[in-house]
Simulated scan of single mutants.
Amino acid sequence: MKDEVLVARGLRKAYGARTAVHEVDLALRPGEVLGLLGPNGAGKSTTVGMICGLTVPDAGTVTLGGGVSLASDEAGYKRRIGLVPQDIALYEELPARMNVELFGALYGMAPDRLRRRADEVLAMVGLSDRARDKPSTFSGGMKRRLNIACALIHDPEVILLDEPTAGVDPQSRNAIFDNLEALKAAGKALIYTTHYMEEAERLADRITVIDHGRVVAQGTQAELFALLPAAQVLHVEIAGEPDDALLAGLPGVKRVGQRLEASVGDVGRDAGPLLAALAERGIAVRGLSSARATLEDVFLHLTGRALRD
């Protein structure tokens, strides 16, 4: 497995006639965040479920460093994995500290280590002063942070986070980001699913995009941006609304009201010829601006713009 702490090969899961995940491969290294992106129903949560052992794959394998798998050593495998599920998984009427200690006890942690570790993870997620309070009194963001503390209590090597910032306020989201960046700096390996592209841009070292249960692209952000037809967009404010026939000979240019959008590879190289072509057609330019492509542009390019319900 070289330096990988986790390798998944050929993961497949079907529910009746519907194949939710088909031949998914993933690899994860220590100190790395792998962003797992995809539209609703693409197979992200099913993939996470198979990796953590909650869902039994129909085919494929997941192996941790040293060759440990669910088949060879289920208890040892699960002790090295931490899961932050998509849905809040807490005992609402137990104090926060008891929630954390309960999860640690399920991993067979010794009492002294469990107490020390509970102090550490509650401090990490900023809940030390609320340790005696019940989650039923917590905000959504506090519950999310307590969920993370429960996933970290046994000090796992690999942490799976399935949309951990869903429904939280900006302050809690930034606190969660700080926690994850600290875990990455400590050498932990993280798999992070999200629908927020800006989160993936901030956190992920590499990204895997899944659609209809299949991997459609994976690599660094730079490698994914290279898949776009153009890396930048020119926004040209024009006077009036020119006949579309005048724009027909301008590849990559589309009209949006009184603005033109042009996909270009290099603004410095391509802006001049475009402006000259517009002048030749008698189209008056009022303003010009540019923007680089975003991860959302890549995502929509790979998965389409159709609604997923």
Rank of each mutant, 00 (worst) to 15 (best):
E199C: 04
E163H: 13
P170T: 15
D169G: 10
N174L: 15
P156H: 00
E163G: 09
H195F: 07
D169C: 12
H195Y: 11
K184S: 06
E157S: 08
M197S: 10
A185Q: 12
V158L: 03
T193N: 10
L161R: 04
S172R: 04
G167E: 05
I159R: 00
Q171K: 15
E163D: 10
Y192N: 02
P156I: 01
L160W: 01
D162E: 07
H154A: 02
R173I: 12
T193M: 05
F177C: 05
I191S: 03
L160C: 07
E199V: 09
D155Q: 13
D178F: 07
D169T: 10
G167F: 05
I176K: 01
R173N: 08
I191F: 06
D162L: 05
F177W: 14
Y196I: 15
E199M: 06
D162S: 06
T165D: 04
L160F: 09
E199T: 06
D169H: 11
F177D: 09
T165H: 07
E199G: 03
E157C: 03
L190D: 00
L183M: 08
L180K: 02
A185F: 11
G187N: 10
D155V: 10
E198F: 09
V158H: 00
L161C: 08
T194I: 12
G167C: 09
T165E: 03
T193R: 05
S172W: 01
I176S: 03
Y196N: 13
L180T: 02
H195W: 08
K184Y: 03
N174T: 15
E157H: 03
L161Q: 01
G187K: 12
T194E: 06
L183D: 01
A166L: 12
H154M: 01
Y192F: 13
A189S: 04
K188R: 14
L180C: 02
E163Y: 11
H154F: 01
I176R: 00
K184T: 07
L161D: 00
A186S: 14
L190P: 01
A186Q: 14
G187E: 06
S172T: 13
I159E: 00
E163V: 14
E198A: 13
I176D: 00
K184W: 02
T165I: 08
L183F: 05
A185D: 08
S172D: 09
V158S: 00
P164G: 09
D178N: 13
F177S: 09
I176F: 07
A189P: 03
M197A: 06
K188C: 06
Q171S: 15
A182M: 06
D155F: 08
K184M: 10
A186P: 07
P156L: 00
A185P: 03
Y192V: 03
D178V: 14
T193P: 11
D162T: 08
Y196G: 13
F177H: 14
L160I: 13
E198C: 11
A185C: 10
I176Y: 02
R173V: 12
E181H: 11
H154I: 01
I159Q: 00
Q171I: 15
L190W: 01
S172Q: 07
N174V: 15
E199H: 04
V158I: 10
F177Y: 14
A185I: 11
K188W: 04
A182Y: 02
D169A: 12
E198Q: 14
I191C: 07
G187I: 12
P164I: 06
I191W: 04
L190S: 01
D169Q: 11
